Measured scan of single mutants.
Amino acid sequence: MSIQHFRVALIPFFAAFCLPVFAHPETLVKVKDAEDQLGARVGYIELDLNSGKILESFRPEERFPMMSTFKVLLCGAVLSRVDAGQEQLGRRIHYSQNDLVEYSPVTEKHLTDGMTVRELCSAAITMSDNTAANLLLTTIGGPKELTAFLHNMGDHVTRLDRWEPELNEAIPNDERDTTMPAAMATTLRKLLTGELLTLASRQQLIDWMEADKVAGPLLRSALPAGWFIADKSGAGERGSRGIIAALGPDGKPSRIVVIYTTGSQATMDERNRQIAEIGASLIKHW
């Protein structure tokens, strides 16, 4: 067993022997301040990774656009098919120029040779490549099948209805392509620590998230040296922004954090800054 596999296998073990965790309302004060600064709703939840206990939450059962955070769930569904012998990570998928959609920095470079399922998941999570996500959605049967996968996990809230990039439209009061912070946090925890996926697939999923290259201005910008984070960000229309993450000190994750916002007129930089400040408060009061 590799060191990384050992780390993920012992996530519940280490967490069980940690000192009790206590909620700190100071972080919620910052979440509410972010709402004021952005002029928009902000949803927040913080779960203990081992027990699933909610440590703090704000608007945990209000719907927010998922945006690209759905790509972690998508690759979880792909990995479940791999575990069941219905898919192979090494299978190569070929596609054409007509398949390319807006923001496809990886797939646009491989029109000639195609990409493997493993490479597509890596591109979808680490670079948020939209064509990679659409190609992977095709392998599982489309958005409705991802929703069905989530329902089978016990998540009857999260739903995907459309493809990239239309799913980022974020129309107010439109339930399409949305989740709730509580539902997303619980589902992410199941994917990373539950028995739904094999140990190898859980490790692969967290490795992809740990290698995320496009979430630097968010929670990662607030992390002290030595902290662990595996995350996936999302951005959408109407001032929408979000991030889902597993993080913790001492090089291992111990909490799940989900943050979503929508309806702001603020710039992307300002949305990023507010999420980073929430992260800084979380870490300060850990």
Rank of each mutant, 00 (worst) to 15 (best):
191 L>I: 10
282 L>T: 09
26 E>I: 14
41 R>D: 07
282 L>F: 08
245 A>I: 02
7 R>K: 10
161 D>Y: 04
108 E>N: 10
83 D>P: 02
49 L>P: 05
126 T>R: 07
38 L>A: 07
171 I>R: 14
55 L>T: 08
70 F>Q: 05
166 E>L: 14
111 L>V: 14
198 T>D: 10
255 R>H: 05
40 A>C: 08
282 L>A: 09
249 P>R: 09
55 L>C: 08
204 Q>N: 14
164 E>T: 00
274 Q>Y: 12
64 F>T: 01
147 T>A: 07
41 R>Q: 10
9 A>V: 09
154 G>Y: 05
121 C>H: 00
71 K>N: 00
166 E>Q: 13
91 R>P: 01
104 S>R: 03
163 W>Y: 12
142 G>P: 02
101 V>C: 10
152 N>H: 15
254 S>P: 07
270 E>H: 10
160 L>A: 11
171 I>W: 14
82 V>R: 07
195 E>T: 12
259 I>Q: 01
101 V>N: 07
134 N>C: 04
63 R>H: 08
50 N>D: 15
121 C>P: 00
178 T>F: 02
82 V>M: 06
50 N>C: 08
172 P>I: 12
148 A>N: 15
261 T>R: 03
201 S>R: 06
112 T>E: 15
15 A>E: 04
104 S>H: 06
105 P>A: 06
217 P>V: 09
260 Y>G: 00
209 M>V: 01
14 F>A: 10
168 N>P: 02
99 D>R: 08
236 G>F: 02
126 T>V: 10
92 R>W: 09
244 I>T: 07
162 R>N: 11
6 F>G: 06
54 I>W: 08
84 A>Y: 10
266 A>Q: 12
176 R>L: 08
138 T>G: 13
69 T>I: 04
278 I>M: 09
239 G>C: 03
244 I>G: 02
192 L>T: 07
65 P>A: 06
132 A>S: 08
179 T>M: 01
256 I>N: 01
208 W>P: 00
199 L>F: 11
173 N>G: 14
17 F>E: 04
57 S>R: 12
119 E>K: 06
164 E>S: 00
233 S>Q: 01
126 T>G: 12
160 L>R: 01
2 S>T: 13
137 L>H: 03
36 D>P: 05
221 S>V: 11
39 G>V: 10
276 A>E: 09
258 V>I: 10
237 E>P: 15
144 K>V: 12
171 I>V: 15
143 P>W: 02
210 E>R: 10
144 K>I: 13
47 L>V: 14
102 E>S: 11
186 T>H: 14
4 Q>Y: 13
162 R>H: 10
66 M>Y: 04
195 E>V: 08
244 I>L: 09
231 D>C: 04
48 D>R: 04
219 L>N: 03
254 S>W: 09
22 F>P: 05
93 I>E: 05
83 D>L: 02
284 K>I: 11
211 A>T: 10
275 I>L: 10
28 L>V: 11
269 D>C: 11
160 L>I: 13
215 A>R: 04
252 K>M: 13
154 G>I: 02
252 K>V: 14
269 D>A: 14
18 C>V: 08
200 A>E: 14
84 A>R: 12
206 I>D: 04
148 A>C: 13
97 Q>D: 13
61 E>Y: 14
80 S>K: 14
97 Q>A: 13
105 P>Y: 05
46 E>C: 07
218 L>W: 02
75 C>N: 02
222 A>T: 14
138 T>V: 15
117 V>R: 01
58 F>A: 09
170 A>T: 08
169 E>L: 13
94 H>N: 13
106 V>F: 07
11 I>K: 05
246 A>E: 06
219 L>Q: 04
283 I>Y: 15
125 I>W: 00
134 N>K: 04
11 I>A: 10
25 P>K: 10
203 Q>H: 14
255 R>Y: 02
23 A>C: 06
223 L>Y: 03
33 D>K: 14
37 Q>H: 13
176 R>S: 09
72 V>G: 03
222 A>I: 13
156 H>G: 15
61 E>K: 13
234 G>R: 00
195 E>N: 15
9 A>Y: 14
134 N>E: 02
98 N>G: 12
229 I>N: 02
42 V>N: 04
272 N>Y: 02
54 I>E: 11
217 P>M: 14
175 E>M: 15
78 V>Q: 03
168 N>V: 06
150 L>Q: 05
264 S>L: 04
108 E>V: 14
94 H>M: 14
249 P>Q: 09
60 P>A: 15
177 D>H: 01
232 K>P: 00
77 A>V: 11
1 M>A: 01
210 E>N: 10
270 E>K: 13
247 L>A: 05
112 T>P: 14
53 K>R: 13
111 L>W: 09
284 K>W: 10
190 K>D: 15
280 A>F: 10
137 L>M: 11
88 Q>N: 13
138 T>F: 10
226 G>T: 12
191 L>Q: 04
247 L>W: 07
170 A>M: 07
188 L>I: 12
21 V>E: 05
14 F>D: 00
176 R>T: 07
26 E>Q: 10
42 V>S: 03
8 V>P: 10
155 D>A: 01
95 Y>F: 14
284 K>S: 14
123 A>C: 08
121 C>A: 08
74 L>V: 08
205 L>G: 00
141 G>R: 06
269 D>F: 12
268 M>W: 09
183 A>N: 09
271 R>F: 04
99 D>K: 08
41 R>T: 09
259 I>Y: 04
209 M>E: 01
79 L>M: 11
280 A>K: 15
93 I>G: 02
74 L>Q: 02
244 I>A: 07
193 T>K: 15
110 H>Y: 11
186 T>R: 14
97 Q>P: 14
257 V>W: 02
178 T>E: 02
213 K>E: 09
24 H>K: 15
282 L>K: 02
20 P>I: 02
214 V>S: 07
185 A>T: 03
260 Y>F: 15
242 G>F: 00
85 G>Y: 08
52 G>D: 08
198 T>M: 10
53 K>H: 13
88 Q>A: 14
285 H>G: 09
99 D>C: 06
272 N>W: 01
207 D>I: 10
45 I>G: 03
273 R>I: 10
173 N>V: 10
255 R>N: 02
15 A>I: 14
17 F>K: 07
224 P>S: 06
183 A>E: 11
243 I>K: 00
256 I>R: 00
43 G>S: 06
192 L>S: 05
50 N>G: 15
190 K>W: 09
177 D>V: 01
147 T>I: 08
56 E>I: 05
186 T>Q: 14
180 M>K: 14
257 V>G: 01
91 R>D: 05
155 D>S: 02
198 T>Q: 11
177 D>E: 02
171 I>S: 14
134 N>M: 04
21 V>M: 05
261 T>L: 10
160 L>T: 10
234 G>N: 01
15 A>P: 07
262 T>Y: 15
260 Y>W: 02
52 G>H: 06
89 L>A: 07
75 C>F: 06
62 E>C: 07
89 L>N: 05
208 W>A: 03
23 A>K: 05
253 P>V: 09
276 A>R: 13
166 E>H: 11
223 L>C: 13
155 D>V: 01
264 S>R: 05
260 Y>D: 00
225 A>G: 14
199 L>E: 15
194 G>V: 07
210 E>F: 10
78 V>P: 00
237 E>N: 14
202 R>E: 09
59 R>K: 09
14 F>P: 02
136 L>C: 04
93 I>S: 03
1 M>D: 01
60 P>M: 13
262 T>E: 10
260 Y>H: 01
59 R>M: 04
22 F>I: 07
226 G>R: 10
101 V>T: 15
34 A>R: 02
16 A>R: 04
24 H>A: 15
187 T>R: 01
140 I>G: 04
123 A>R: 01
57 S>V: 10
174 D>Q: 06
131 T>Y: 05
155 D>E: 04
220 R>F: 03
